[in-house]
Design a binder for these strands. Sequence first.
DNA 1: CGCTAAAGTTACAGACCGGTAACACCCTAG
DNA 2: CTAGGGTGTTACCGGTCTGTAACTTTAGCG
Lengths: 193, 193
Amino acid sequence: MADGTTERVRPRDRILETAQDMFHKHGIKGVGVDAITEAAGTNKMTLYRHFESKDDLIIECLRATACKAAAIWDAFEAEYPGDKLAQLHAWVRKAADMLNADSRGCDMANAAIELSETDHPARRVIKELKEAQRDRLVSLCRDAGVGQAELLADTLSLLLEGARVSMQSVGAEGPSAQFVRMAEGLIASFRAR
Amino acid sequence: MADGTTERVRPRDRILETAQDMFHKHGIKGVGVDAITEAAGTNKMTLYRHFESKDDLIIECLRATACKAAAIWDAFEAEYPGDKLAQLHAWVRKAADMLNADSRGCDMANAAIELSETDHPARRVIKELKEAQRDRLVSLCRDAGVGQAELLADTLSLLLEGARVSMQSVGAEGPSAQFVRMAEGLIASFRAR
DNA sequence: CGCTAAAGTTACAGACCGGTAACACCCTAG
DNA sequence: CTAGGGTGTTACCGGTCTGTAACTTTAGCG
């Protein structure tokens, strides 16, 4: 303990990272600020000096995860520069990898379900970030030369979203196990016409 | 108030009905037993005389909603006796209707997300009930004479599950708006081969 | 009527929650 | 060396949560 990694990083970043991880694993309402600060090696006062409230922390966490997701998208472009179809297949592969590696699904979708209050401040952020991801997938499908790009993108979106939640209800051996086959079949089908 | 409807129904059933409704609207962790009993026109002691714990109440609520879902399935058979393909299309229509009528999604999926503890007693019930629904959809697809019935059923499952959660994150104008077109397209595509 | 079982009432225990106040500390910039 | 901002510590507030105890009231039924 007391290693450089833990000590050098600013408390705010440690809190943000820890909160992301704990919200993801245990859900937002399943984690209290005390548990977060303790796991982050700090205390509640420091948290409230950097974040207005727990709701504010939640929002910052969602923005942070959205940033990480954007970095993954950028990696597709870096790996297959200009080849949008290859990037689309990479998206399918990456989505499947993340399904297998983690069974707690999408933080934003989970948050939307947990925070049922329609006027919760996090809701508009969730919608905004999810719409950005949707736009990105639509663009990818369109630039890959697929007809009805929006319909394909939306179908893939729902498939992935469904796979992530199905994982949590029926488990990994359920319908989500066929995600890659479904997605690839859809892409092929949309390209054929 | 104090009308026959409220008074005649046994407290246990009133609690069960009210809890289902409130869990659905506000989430499981978003509503306490006090609020449930008050809304049900009774009190906490009576609740705990009929249910061992809140977890027990949760499980009974999930079983009750599964029963209601089963009744909807039975209605398909009653409306199109023997015509499995018509029943499959009725399933799509009904799913879309429920998407439009209510934006809080599937109680079982929501519960699975909210109750992140892997050993929560409700988890095995959720899995069991979801698997039963999956089996039913697979049978319907198979009996409708569709090749690769399991794959079609699983794809439709994920699409619907995704639509229900997408509804809660991006809203009704998001990808879920295309659910019927996607589902019908898939059925047609699977039947064509 | 009178008995009994179910239901209502009140109060409480013990834990946890988000959030704040007051104060001591330490590290670094000047 | 010193001043000051960031951080840690402790204690606390008011509220909510699940669950229980003891007692009173009500309702059905022979």
